Amino acid sequence: RERTTFTRAQLDVLEALFAKTRYPDIFMREEVALKINLPESRVQVWFKNRRAKCRQ
């Protein structure tokens, strides 16, 4: 699998959701994945990595 490159628009949507909740449930992830045209698994990993970035 190639490394996913997120567009600015995708990142804006993800960051906005992250500001609301750091742990979105499966339904929220599915919804945002459809909206920004990414698989739900990529959204899940993005959140995992974003939380890790926050902890540093």
Rank of each mutant, 00 (worst) to 15 (best):
R1M: 13
R1N: 06
E2Y: 05
E2N: 08
E2V: 07
E2G: 08
E2C: 02
E2F: 05
E2A: 06
E2M: 04
E2P: 06
R3H: 13
R3Q: 15
R3S: 15
R3V: 13
R3K: 11
R3I: 07
R3T: 15
T4S: 12
T4N: 15
T4W: 04
T4G: 11
T5E: 14
T5A: 12
T5Q: 13
T5W: 09
T5G: 11
F6I: 11
F6P: 10
F6K: 04
F6A: 06
T7G: 03
T7D: 10
T7M: 04
T7P: 02
T7C: 08
T7H: 04
T7A: 08
T7I: 03
T7S: 10
R8L: 07
R8M: 11
R8T: 14
R8V: 08
R8Q: 15
A9F: 12
A9L: 08
A9C: 11
A9S: 13
A9P: 09
Q10C: 03
Q10P: 01
Q10N: 03
Q10Y: 01
L11V: 10
L11M: 07
L11N: 10
D12G: 07
D12A: 06
V13N: 05
V13H: 05
V13P: 05
L14A: 02
L14G: 03
L14D: 00
L14N: 02
L14C: 04
E15D: 01
E15N: 06
E15F: 02
E15R: 02
A16M: 08
A16K: 04
A16D: 04
A16V: 11
A16Y: 02
A16R: 09
A16G: 08
L17D: 00
L17Y: 13
L17C: 12
L17N: 04
L17M: 13
L17Q: 11
L17W: 04
L17P: 00
F18L: 03
F18D: 00
F18V: 02
F18I: 00
F18N: 02
F18G: 01
K20V: 07
K20F: 02
K20G: 03
K20C: 07
K20Q: 15
K20Y: 01
K20T: 12
T21Q: 08
T21C: 09
T21E: 10
T21V: 08
T21Y: 09
R22T: 06
R22F: 04
R22H: 14
R22P: 14
Y23T: 10
Y23R: 08
Y23M: 07
Y23F: 14
Y23N: 10
Y23P: 00
P24V: 02
P24T: 00
P24L: 02
P24D: 03
P24Q: 03
D25N: 07
D25F: 01
D25I: 00
D25E: 02
D25K: 03
I26T: 15
I26N: 08
I26S: 12
F27R: 15
F27P: 07
F27G: 14
F27H: 11
F27T: 15
M28L: 13
M28S: 12
M28K: 09
M28C: 03
M28G: 02
R29W: 00
R29I: 13
R29D: 01
E30G: 06
E30A: 10
E31W: 05
E31K: 11
E31G: 06
E31Q: 10
E31P: 00
V32K: 04
V32Q: 09
V32C: 15
V32T: 05
V32R: 02
V32L: 09
V32W: 00
A33M: 03
A33Q: 03
A33Y: 04
L34C: 11
L34R: 15
L34E: 14
K35N: 10
K35I: 05
K35L: 06
I36C: 15
I36T: 14
I36A: 13
I36V: 13
N37P: 00
N37K: 12
N37Y: 00
N37E: 11
N37M: 07
L38R: 06
L38E: 15
L38F: 05
L38Y: 04
P39R: 03
P39T: 11
E40M: 10
E40T: 06
E40I: 05
E40A: 09
E40V: 09
S41E: 14
S41K: 09
S41H: 12
S41F: 09
S41T: 10
R42V: 14
R42K: 07
R42L: 12
R42M: 14
R42A: 13
V43Y: 00
V43M: 03
V43W: 02
V43F: 03
Q44I: 06
Q44C: 11
Q44H: 11
Q44Y: 07
Q44V: 08
V45Y: 12
V45L: 12
V45N: 15
W46C: 00
W46Q: 03
W46A: 00
W46K: 01
W46E: 00
W46M: 01
W46T: 00
W46D: 01
W46I: 00
F47E: 00
F47N: 01
F47L: 07
F47D: 02
K48I: 11
K48H: 09
K48V: 10
K48L: 06
N49S: 11
N49R: 11
N49C: 07
N49Y: 04
R50F: 05
R50P: 00
R50V: 02
R50G: 00
R50S: 09
R50N: 13
R50K: 11
R50W: 04
R50A: 14
R51M: 03
R51Y: 02
R51H: 00
R51W: 03
A52F: 05
A52T: 08
A52H: 13
A52C: 07
A52Q: 06
K53Y: 05
K53H: 12
K53T: 12
K53R: 10
K53Q: 14
C54S: 13
C54A: 14
C54E: 13
R55E: 12
R55Q: 10
R55H: 12
R55G: 14
Q56D: 12
Q56E: 14
Q56Y: 12
Q56V: 08
